[in-house]
Design a binder for these strands. Structure first.
Lengths: 109, 109
DNA sequence: TATAATTGGTTACATAAAGTAACTAAGAGA
DNA sequence: TCTCTTAGTTACTTTATGTAACCAATTATA
């Protein structure tokens, strides 16, 4: 019997990226700190799920949350070093998509 | 108003990898063609979902299915060129996980 | 003084996806 | 005939996601 098992670290990492929206949020934040409402618009995610995902990402140390007590209040989400270090992963996905995804059929899986 | 939108090709690519199990299946197949029952055991996915995922991956040209009419029948799943070209993505996820995932807490997100 | 506008969420409910376990089909061998 | 094996499928439960309405704090406007 084959006892080989997938590397637990890899499994943890990919379970993170396999959560819907998480990859897109990180990708979007690579271009700099952004506000809640801006993320909902650009990504096309509901407030309910964005809120949930950002809390998870913060808890995992990938994203930071900064409050600017202006009027109205401004809250910015940004990648931490841990989050930013996913850039090479995102770059490779980008590369792959340029070669293998036909822009004519960029519909959802 | 900011009209910037996430690259549609990237969005398609990441929606593929954001489907639960899909990344793990591709990662596992990087080590060579494998049978249905072996994949369920190694990945820890149910037959129902593995069947569904493999059909999708085949339809998208990432995985091929080969029937060997032996007894009992042997069916092997393998990556196509398109599927195998995701190796750099998987390698980068692997790299990231080695640096940033603490093996002591490799629990699910 | 009341009303409205803005940001950053939350709540309640409907729908879709995933998990679980039992079942099936086809062929070969006892 | 009965059993074994592989490769799935079916029916049902649980969890995740989508949708839309709502709320609190603060300031501007009528």
């Amino acid at each position: 019997m084959d006892t080989s098992v997938i590397c637990p670290r890899f499994e943890t990492a990919i379970s993170l990226l396999s959560q819907r929206w998480t990859g897109l949020i990180i990708y979007q934040l690579l271009s700099g700190p952004q506000r809640f409402s801006h993320l909902t618009e650009v990504i096309g995610i509901s407030g309910r799920l964005l809120s949930e995902r950002l809390k998870n990402l913060e808890a995992q140390g990938l994203v930071s949350r900064t409050v600017y007590p202006e009027t109205p209040v401004r809250i910015e989400y940004a990648l931490t070093e841990k989050g930013f270090s996913l850039k090479p992963v995102m770059d490779e996905i980008q590369n792959w998509s340029q070669v293998w995804i036909d822009p004519a059929e960029t519909t959802k899986v």
